[in-house]
């Protein structure tokens, strides 16, 4: 498993590059939108910098209006050294089950899809776009709407923030494009 956790040094470096990381996220967004259009994904939402993280996230609902089932692709940027970055790609799928007030059971699956170095975010362009397209395509492949996705992790989350792991597994069925 790739360790994506940020150290104090990472945070300072990220702060120094808040604005220079954005062009990498621009390239990623372009690629995400292309995937969304190609595969007719529904209810797409794209956002950046959630909780100040150098990331861009595209999520969608594989079944229209069923907000308890979701899928996403994330691109996360880490600063390796001045003007040298590493870009990580992943996808996730989940199913939420509410059991009364204050109790949520979440089933989910996580799929790392690789990482690439990018030198000079401001200059990131054609070559990087090709690789970013490839890795985002790979990330989508793990959670493609046309395939069944097995959610191999599960947890109970109480409204006070306490949790309990459970060993349950479930699947998201493939989406009928006519649905």
């Amino acid at each position: 498993m790739i360790d994506l956790s940020a150290t104090a040094r990472d945070l300072v470096q990220t702060e120094e590059h808040f604005e220079t990381i954005d062009p990498i996220l621009d390239l990623s967004e372009r690629s995400m939108l292309a995937i969304g259009a190609e595969h007719h994904l529904r209810d797409i939402n794209i956002e950046r910098w959630r909780w100040d993280q150098p990331e861009i996230l595209m999520s969608w609902l594989p079944f229209r209006r069923e907000t308890h089932i979701g899928k996403n692709i994330r691109v996360l940027v880490k600063v390796e050294q001045a003007n040298a970055f590493r870009v990580y790609f992943e996808s996730n799928a989940w199913y939420d089950e509410r059991r009364g007030p204050g109790m949520l059971i979440r089933y989910w699956a996580h799929f790392p899809a690789g990482d690439i170095p990018v030198d000079g975010a401001q200059e990131a362009a054609q070559d990087e776009q090709r690789w970013i397209n490839k890795y985002i395509q790979d990330a989508y492949g793990h959670v493609a709407d046309a395939k069944e996705v097995t959610l191999d992790q599960s947890i109970i989350i109480w409204s006070d923030g306490s949790t309990e792991s459970i060993g349950a597994v479930m699947s998201i069925p493939p989406v009928d494009p006519e649905q």
Binding site: N72, R74, N92, R106, P112, I155, I157
Partner: peptide, 17 residues
């Protein structure tokens, strides 16, 4: 809204922005 799973972490808390 409910936080989505990311980075092999479950999410599940409520967030606003």
């Amino acid at each position: 809204r409910i936080v989505q799973p990311l980075g092999n972490m479950p999410g599940g808390a409520i967030e606003v922005c």
